[in-house]
C-alpha cells in the first residue's frame, strides 16, 4: 500500500478546495438560502406542515441530499477530469500507485469536501428553522455513505468523460431531475397515485426518505429499504469502476 501516495493525492485535492474555499462554500450556501426563501417561506406559508413536521424543517434533509449529491459528483468528476485535461495525469500514471489507491485519494477528498459542505448547510438551516435529529448515528451513516457513493459515481463520470460537456451532462440531465422528483421538497403522498408508483423507481427517493427518517422519523419508504438501496448504489459504483479498470484505462494510450 502506497500510503504516502494516497495522502499526497488527498491533500492535493483538499488544497484545491482551500484555494477555492469561497466558491466551494458560497454557492451551496446561496442556493440553500434561496430554497428556504422560495420553498420554505413562499410555499411553506401555504403548506403548514407535512406529516406533523413544519414544512421549513421538512425540506432540510432533502436540501442537504441535493447539495451532497451534486457536490460529491462535481468534486470527484472534476478532480479526476482536470489532470486528464491539463496533462498532469502523466504523473499519476507513472507513479508506483495502484488504481485503487488513486481512487481512494480522489474519492476520499471529494467525499470530505461534500461532507464539510453538508455540515455547513445543516448549521445554516439551523438558523432558519427548528431542527431535531432523532437518530444522529443513522444520519451520519447516510451523510457519509451518500458522500462516498456519489463521489465514486462522480469519479466514474470524470474518468470516462473526454470533454467538458459530457462532464456536466449526467449531473444536469439525470441527477438534478432525480433529486427534485425524489421527494426532496414534498412527501410523495401528496402526489396522485400513478406518480407515487413512478416515484418508487427513483433511487434518490429512498435516500431522501431514509435521511429524513433519521431526522423526524417520518418516511415515504421503510428505513431498511432506504439502507439497502444506498448499499446497492454503492456496490454498483464499485462494480462499474472495477470492471472499467480491469478492462484497461481509457486515459492511457
Amino acid at each position: 500500500m502506497n500510503y504516502y501516495g494516497v495522502k499526497a493525492i488527498y491533500l492535493h485535492e483538499m488544497d484545491r478546495m482551500r484555494r477555492t474555499l469561497f466558491q466551494s462554500l458560497v454557492s451551496p450556501l446561496i442556493s440553500t438560502s434561496l430554497y428556504f426563501i422560495v420553498f420554505g417561506s413562499a410555499i411553506g406559508s401555504r403548506i403548514k406542515e407535512v406529516d406533523g413536521v413544519a414544512y421549513g424543517s421538512f425540506i432540510v434533509p432533502g436540501m442537504i441530499m441535493l447539495t451532497l449529491l451534486t457536490q460529491s459528483i462535481s468534486n470527484a468528476s472534476f478532480g479526476i477530469y482536470f489532470p486528464k485535461f491539463t496533462g498532469t495525469i502523466y504523473e499519476l500514471l507513472a507513479a508506483p500507485i495502484s488504481s485503487f489507491e488513486i481512487i481512494l485519494g480522489f474519492v476520499g477528498a471529494a467525499a470530505t469536501k461534500s461532507l464539510i459542505i453538508g455540515c455547513v448547510i445543516i448549521a445554516t438551516a439551523g438558523l432558519f428553522v427548528d431542527l431535531n435529529i432523532a437518530h444522529p448515528l443513522v444520519m451520519m451513516f447516510f451523510l457519509i455513505f451518500t458522500a462516498v457513493t456519489f463521489s465514486l459515481f462522480g469519479f466514474i463520470i470524470g474518468f470516462w468523460a473526454d470533454n467538458f460537456e459530457k462532464l456536466q451532462l449526467i449531473p444536469i440531465l439525470i441527477i438534478t431531475p432525480l433529486v427534485f422528483l425524489g421527494g426532496s421538497f414534498y412527501s410523495i403522498n401528496m402526489l396522485p397515485e400513478f406518480w407515487q408508483k413512478v416515484s418508487l423507481f427513483n433511487p434518490v427517493l429512498y435516500l431522501v426518505s431514509g435521511f429524513r427518517w433519521s431526522f423526524y422519523e417520518i418516511a415515504d419508504v421503510s428505513i431498511f429499504t432506504s439502507l439497502a438501496t444506498m448499499l446497492f448504489i454503492l456496490f454498483s459504483c464499485i462494480t462499474i469502476i472495477s470492471i472499467s479498470f480491469a478492462k484497461g484505462y481509457k486515459i492511457k494510450n
Partner: peptide, 29 residues
C-alpha cells in the same frame, strides 16, 4: 524512475514547493 515529459504540463495555482512535495508523495516517500 523519474520522468521529465516533453510537454510543459503543470498545474496552475499550486506553489512550486507544494507541487514538488506532492510528486515525492506520489512515489510513496
Amino acid at each position: 524512475i523519474g520522468i521529465v515529459p516533453q510537454e510543459l504540463t503543470l498545474e496552475a495555482f499550486e506553489t512550486v514547493w507544494d507541487n514538488v512535495c506532492y510528486s515525492r508523495g506520489l512515489y510513496g516517500k
